[in-house]
Amino acid sequence: MIKANKLAYEYIRRDEEGNVEGIIRALDGVDLEIKKGDFVAILGHNGSGKSTIAKEINAILEPTEGTLFVNGLDVSDESKIWDVRQSAGMVFQNPDNQIVASLVEEDVAFGPENLGVPSPEIKQRVAYALEKVGMEDHRGSSPNALSGGQKQRVAIAGILAMKPKCIVLDEPTAMLDPGGRREVIKTLHELNKKEGITILLITHYMDEVTGADRVIVMDDGKIVMQGTPREIFSKVDEVKSHHLDVPQVTELAYELNKRGFRFPPGVLTKEEFINALLG
């Protein structure tokens, strides 16, 4: 679905006169392969290059070096930009900046309308997308009246209505309350399982990635760790050395092991913890 080979991206920083002041190598030789139907989470410190990768996948930025294919399409090929964007939809952090229409259903219809989809089919797609994110009862509401979590689900529906193969979400829960976060993460897992949509989730919340198939850790433009959540979170010290953390339950087991307990490495859920403790 996504294949990057030695992908690099450099931002050029210029002063007021337009002279080059500095070059920031935000991505530095990234090799990445994401298969169709995978649920992949990307973790990494601030400035590690996560959003830059997301923008590459969405053909907002063109690779400085290396290659990137999305759904078999070369993102450097300008004639394919719209096909790339339709294959991999993007959802951003701030729910308020993504809403364009004054009614939920119009907002969801916006993408397919731009793609030139005929109206009867747009109706179908909007109904399908709103149902998939559990917002069908709000189709006639004003997006302003929705909670943050609901707004993000509408944004996801807007992407779904374009029938993408993959959705890239750049910190979709950063501004949400705990209830909103639960809603969004649950929705993503359902889309992944039931609709087979490939999910690429960027987040700073460790507990949101425990259900992913694979976790990728970035540091200074490079991929430095890769594996299942259990593989990643069993390496507590290494994870922390990249400015990250582990879920609270994992941390608790790790702390107790220092005090002589024997929890297996990478305990991820409360159930696992309780079973290990009570044997």
Partner: peptide, 29 residues
Amino acid sequence: IGLAAPDVTYLTAMLRERGVGLPDVATTV
């Protein structure tokens, strides 16, 4: 009301329900 407690609060509450005699729920690791 759309909120939550820290994960260790749920964990210690579950342990208490399973008969583990903790004095209270915990709020930090």
